[in-house]
Amino acid sequence: MRERSAGEAALLLLADSRLPAGGHAHSGGVEEAIRLGTITGRDDLAGFLRGRLATAGLVAAALAAAACELGAALADVEDMEEDVEEEDADDACRLWRRLDAEADARTASPALRETARTQGRLLIRTARRIWPSAMLDTLARAVPDGAHHPVVLGATAAVAGCEPRQAALAAAHGSVAAPATAAVRLLGLDPVAVHGLLAALAPDLDGTAHAACASLGGARSVEWPGLPAHAAPALDLLAEGHRRNPLRLFVS
């Protein structure tokens, strides 16, 4: 079995905005919401972050947890068997593609699917150099254009030694931290006040990670269809509008 005690420190690395995986260029809909005037200050931002966490954040957390569980199971197989059978590798590819398809089904907006795949591609490029592993190589091979970001995040968390709940927490954190930072940059908000909003959401982040793991157990793909799929129609509208706006500073 793999050593799990590295989980907490690895979680800090994964959730750190300085992880060089392109996260700094994503506003998660905030740039477009500001352009349209639906976010003008701290209070709007608070509501935005709350709703984003309860929808996109929960879905990302659930997918990341499932991916972490799968990644750990596959890595264990690789650890036990020196030479991974080609058949096993094919099975692993199939499982990654199925989980990725579950992410696709939960992402109705093409703009958001493209964003998720771009971010996933950037993260796996970075992760494979930091935490080289056959499991990440398999994932990269299974979805060459980039798996959805939460799937890659979960797989990376597994190879870094995190538990599924920690992967979910990293995903939930990312779902609000990046938009909060973008709002600070775009609206000139007081960064301390905005971090106060994130601090107020901390119990919800824990709750989200817990809820994300509630329907998991044993890396069984049979559970994936039932994972949370909370939609945010406004985020979809914002993403599609943002995609068509040539004057944008952020990727999403």
């Binding site: 392109g22 260029a25 950037l122």
Partner: peptide
């Protein structure tokens, strides 16, 4: 490549977006 208000970050601290574009 969009740099999220931080052109500096995109070429020095977090080059992932640019590497992706190059590749």
């Amino acid at each position: 490549v969009q740099t999220g208000c931080c052109p500096h970050t995109a070429i020095r601290d977090d080059i992932a977006g640019n590497l992706d574009a190059v590749e």
